[in-house]
Simulated assay, not measured.
Amino acid sequence: MEELFQLKEFLLNGNIHEALLLVEEMTEMSKDDKLNKIFSFAKILLLHLIKQKAENRTTRSWNLSIKNAIKEIQRTNQRRKAQGYYCQPSELRETLEDAYGIALDAAAKEAFEGKYESENLGTMVDRKAIIDQAMGLILDNTQEG
């Protein structure tokens, strides 16, 4: 909120250059917030995809978590008024890549009743295939990959 008051002051004083710099900073802050939300849902999505692949099964609960995570990622990434997306596919993939390790650690605690360490569980699944699957699910009906 402080930034809006500062922006107003810059505009009232005719300091357009400083106002534009502040708008750019605020835009980056907004995008960072969107990326953080997408990252949180990406961890949930990847966690359940890893468990599905490792255990070669699924549950209704996992399917629901996957569906909800996909929907939240798509919803968060959608620019409602300006149309388009906050993150392009390359940025989404980078976010999934970043979230994978955390999701693998969480999956190790849950899959097979927690009997494998994340390193062991990681050898049971194909990291790239899971990230590709997640990308496909996220991009389905939203944007071209």
Rank of each mutant, 00 (worst) to 15 (best):
A82H: 11
R80H: 12
L45G: 01
N13Y: 08
W62S: 13
Y86N: 01
A111H: 10
L104C: 02
R75Q: 12
A103E: 03
E72G: 11
I138V: 10
N77F: 10
M135C: 05
K71W: 14
M29V: 11
E18A: 14
I130L: 11
M26Q: 07
E110N: 07
I44D: 07
I66V: 12
K51M: 11
Q74M: 07
D33H: 10
G114A: 02
L35R: 13
E91H: 04
S118V: 01
D132R: 03
L92G: 04
R79W: 10
E9F: 09
K43I: 04
Y116R: 04
N63F: 12
M29A: 15
A82Q: 15
L46G: 01
C87D: 13
M29R: 15
L45A: 01
G145N: 10
L104N: 05
D98T: 13
E9S: 12
T59C: 02
A54T: 01
L12P: 01
A69T: 05
M135L: 08
G136C: 05
S90V: 02
N120Y: 08
F41C: 06
S90Y: 09
I102R: 13
D140Q: 13
G136Y: 06
Y86I: 05
N13Q: 14
N63E: 15
R127F: 11
E113K: 12
A82L: 15
N141K: 14
L49A: 02
F39D: 06
T58V: 07
K67N: 14
Q88G: 05
L4R: 09
I38W: 04
L46M: 02
E119I: 13
Q78Y: 15
F41V: 00
E97F: 07
R60P: 09
I73C: 02
Q52Y: 00
F10T: 00
F112Q: 01
G122P: 01
Y86F: 15
K128C: 02
G14P: 00
D32S: 14
L137P: 01
E117H: 08
L20I: 04
N68Y: 15
A82V: 11
N36G: 06
F41A: 01
